[in-house]
Computed example of a mutant assay.
Amino acid sequence: MQSVMIPKGLCDEIDVMIRQFIWGSTSDNKKITLVIWDSICQPKSHGGLGIRSLHDHNTSFVMKLRFKLVTDYSSLWVNVLRSKYVVQGGLPESLSRGQYSFLWRSLSNIWPLIHQNLLWSVGDRRNINCWKDSWVPNVGPLYKKIACNSSLDMDCSLSDMVTENAYWNLDFFLLWLAKDIIH
């Protein structure tokens, strides 16, 4: 469960068994549910029992692995997977699924969810793609905000957008983006 995506149907079946256990039901003897299930799934601090959906729990485990694959270059398993599946530095737009291991297929299935929820911390600006990576809060990738990109280098890093004096090149951004995004 921590390294592969379990089929949603199987997760739902196990969730049903958990519900039956909580209510004391069996397949022959159904009990009345006294509280709505969403209330029970709330955290204990909000009055629930803290029970999680198995599918959501499985997804969060695999997302954690995927996040490590993107950010942790010191772990052996990260270096092995990056080398085996030829993932260069930075954040790829997609992952191939083909005839790969169960772990890699699980990571590639969850990739769109990771990609849309990941926000880069700027740091030294070299590893961030200016247009394709999400680095501006609540905006997403900037290429989606550009009106016309015929002569724009979509593979430039964020460090290319800084002047020699270490200031943002706002004139360049103003050519391609709306003022409300820049300010």
Rank of each mutant, 00 (worst) to 15 (best):
Met1Ala: 12
Met1Gln: 06
Gln2Ser: 11
Ser3Pro: 03
Ile6Phe: 12
Pro7Lys: 10
Ile14His: 03
Asp15Ala: 14
Ser25Asp: 07
Ser25Phe: 02
Thr26Arg: 04
Ile36Asn: 14
Trp37Val: 01
Ser39Cys: 01
Ile40Ser: 00
Cys41His: 04
Gln42Gly: 08
Pro43Ala: 01
Lys44Gly: 08
Gly47Met: 04
Gly47Leu: 00
Gly50Asp: 10
Arg52Asn: 08
His55Met: 06
Met63Ile: 11
Lys64Gly: 09
Arg66Ser: 04
Lys68Glu: 03
Leu69Val: 08
Val70Gly: 03
Thr71Arg: 07
Leu76Arg: 07
Val80Thr: 14
Leu81Phe: 12
Lys84Arg: 07
Leu91Gly: 01
Leu91Asn: 11
Gly98Ser: 15
Tyr100Asp: 00
Tyr100Ser: 00
Ser108Asn: 10
Trp111Pro: 01
Ile114Arg: 14
His115Phe: 08
His115Lys: 15
Asn117Leu: 15
Leu118Gly: 02
Leu118Met: 13
Arg125Val: 03
Lys132Asn: 14
Lys132Pro: 09
Ser134Thr: 09
Pro137Ala: 13
Val139Trp: 12
Leu142Ala: 09
Tyr143Lys: 02
Lys144Phe: 12
Ser150Arg: 10
Asp153Thr: 00
Met154Cys: 12
Leu158Thr: 00
Leu158His: 05
Ser159Gly: 00
Asp160Cys: 13
Met161Ser: 01
Thr163Val: 05
Glu164Gln: 06
Glu164Arg: 01
Tyr167Asp: 15
Asp171Trp: 02
Leu174Tyr: 01
Leu177Thr: 05
